[in-house]
Amino acid sequence: MVPVEPLLSMIYLMVLFGSALVSALLILILKPLLVRYALARPNARSSHKIPTPQGGGIAVIGACLLVTGAALLTGNALPASFTVVIVATLMLALVGAVDDIRPLPAIPRLLLQIAAVTAVVVASDMRVLPESVPLAVEQALLVVGGVWFVNLVNFMDGLDWITVAEMVPVTAFIAPLYFVAVASLPKEANVSEVMFVAASLCGALLGFAPFNKPVARLFLGDVGSLPIGLLVGWMLLQLAGTGALAAALLLPLYYLMDATITLLRRLRRGEKVWEAHRSHFYQKATDNGFSALGVSAHVFGLNLVLAGLAAMTLIWPSGAVQVAALGAGVVLVGLVLRRFSTPRPKIPLEVSR
């Protein structure tokens, strides 16, 4: 009999590569339709210069759910709680698809997001805060945080390769970190759902990456960014529920800080925060002389370091290490945000004599 750990690792890799292949094939099949019906035309707030098809998220989410479902169904029936996650993900994908074609009003869109996140939080029945906090209060806070996370993932998907640079490291590291965190618990837990979703979403994004590399020939669209936010938020909630709250905060810390600081600044200026804008640090970076590839490279490298800090909080789970790792993460993200906000010096062209 093959030991559990090597068997899970083998299945993990099969799921990852299978999802990448399915995602790329779906994109090749769907792209002619997306070019015809889902063309994103540049405007004053866009980072692209020419009309570009969006909707690649259909392939990413489709591949993720198909491969995850197939992997889980080889064992037993899908757990009821995970079925809720699938339904909520599909609902947000539908909301995003409609919004990509004909923008929805802010209030109905927000209400549908709240419904999807609430269903996932309640079905997960996960405790993150101390037991002294009433369950209803904790779940309300988790819903607010989950809705914000879904939206910030959507807000941050505004530059070629940035979602790949952010979410590939996050999803790649969630599975091993969750496996380590669960192993330290006094009771056994089923790790297959989180591991397979992480592997399949990571693979699906890798399959999408060649089409989104600068200069992008395809965008995710809201049909991809909204459900990706929900799925990653659910996985981070599962990780935090094992007691690894610091790790769950460190993995997406760049997105959390960029989007949250930007939101607070816009609120202070009295802007309509639900409207599109170019105030994010990654957007300022391109205005300040960074290329899209340069921004994504910074984000990718930063996320590898944040994942290393997250791993440290599990290897040495003392309070001092948790605080130190979080502090170091905040400082590192702050340095990158400052770098993005600083104009790069222009290199003077040589004048020929």
Rank of each mutant, 00 (worst) to 15 (best):
L7Y: 13
M10Y: 11
I11A: 11
Y12N: 09
L16M: 10
L16D: 02
L16G: 01
F17R: 07
L21A: 13
S23C: 12
L25H: 10
I27W: 01
A38N: 15
A40V: 06
A40D: 15
R41P: 07
P51S: 02
C64H: 09
C64W: 08
T68A: 14
G69R: 00
G69L: 07
A70Q: 12
A70V: 14
T74G: 13
G75V: 08
G75I: 08
A80S: 14
T83V: 12
V84E: 14
V85D: 01
V87H: 08
L90T: 06
A93L: 00
L94W: 13
L94I: 10
V95P: 03
L104W: 04
A106H: 10
I114Y: 12
A115R: 05
T118D: 06
A119R: 05
M126K: 11
P130Y: 07
E131G: 06
L135M: 09
E138P: 03
Q139C: 09
L142D: 04
G145D: 00
G145T: 02
W148P: 00
W148E: 04
F149S: 01
N151H: 08
L152P: 00
V153G: 01
M156I: 09
G158L: 02
G158V: 02
T171A: 10
I174D: 02
A175Q: 04
F179D: 13
A181F: 01
L185P: 04
K187S: 15
E188I: 14
E188A: 14
A189V: 11
A189S: 14
S192R: 15
F196Q: 07
A199L: 08
S200Q: 04
L201D: 05
C202Y: 01
A204Y: 06
A204Q: 01
L205T: 01
P210G: 14
P210F: 07
F211A: 06
N212H: 05
P214N: 12
V215F: 10
V215Q: 14
R217S: 14
D222G: 03
S225R: 07
S225M: 10
L226K: 00
L226A: 03
P227H: 15
I228N: 03
L231V: 07
W234D: 00
M235G: 03
L236H: 02
G241W: 06
G241E: 08
G243Y: 06
G243S: 11
P252W: 05
Y254P: 01
Y255I: 07
M257F: 03
M257T: 02
I261W: 13
R268I: 12
W274G: 04
W274V: 09
R278Y: 07
S279W: 09
F281M: 05
K284T: 12
T286V: 14
D287Q: 13
A292H: 15
G294C: 02
V299L: 11
F300L: 13
L302C: 13
L304K: 08
M312Y: 09
I315G: 08
A324N: 05
L326C: 08
G329M: 07
G329I: 03
L335R: 13
R339N: 09
R344F: 12
R344M: 14
P345F: 09
K346T: 13
P348E: 11
P348R: 10
E350W: 12
E350T: 11
V351H: 09
R353E: 15
